[in-house]
Amino acid sequence: MSPLLPQTVLDRLHAALPQARVELVNNPSPSGQHALLVHREDAVQVAEFLKNDPELLLDYASDVSGVDYPEYLEAVYHLFSIAKKHGPIVLKTRTGDRGADASVPSLTRVWKSADFQEREAFDLFGIRFEGHPDLRRLLMWEEFEDFPLRKDYVAPNDCEYEPTPHGDIVQKAAAASASPVPQA
């Protein structure tokens, strides 16, 4: 198994799809897993190519996760090839912003494995995956409104009882102690 380098993938991509907007994102970590950042409008096309190109055959989208950055949200796909036994190739798409334009195209039609994971990223980050066949919340309940894994998420103040308080919980507990827990 020879490792598949993101640069090789990028070269093949540029050769086959010259108009696709893809760039290499450097990863400073010792892991050396550099990512391919694809413009969201070209994502489906690029994904199809990665999956079907005979040299790459990235047929296995193992992991999909969302990441929250101050300016945008990111959907990260970790692709492997079962036929060629190489990977991971990290594919990223970014939303326009964190509000109204927080959408990227869904790759579930390319890799079915993205189905639940994109729903999870939608649920916890609020990334709308356009074209997902069944985009509903996965883990939280339907009526829930916020996106818990975003950095600016504010947890509800519903501390029932806090015997070992810490940090800001001290204040919350003090507020809660106005209505103390009924003692047995």
Binding site: S29, P30, Q33, D63, H78
Partner: peptide, 30 residues
């Protein structure tokens, strides 16, 4: 150090992977 990594092993139930993003602090960014 800052950066990200995906590590996986063959767990008894299948591929168990962790995608971690660090910004160089004491807590995982993602």
């Amino acid at each position: 150090p800052a950066g990200e990594a995906y590590g996986r092993i063959e767990g008894p139930k299948g591929e168990l992977g962790f995608h971690l993003v660090s910004n160089g602090t004491e807590k995982p960014y993602r």
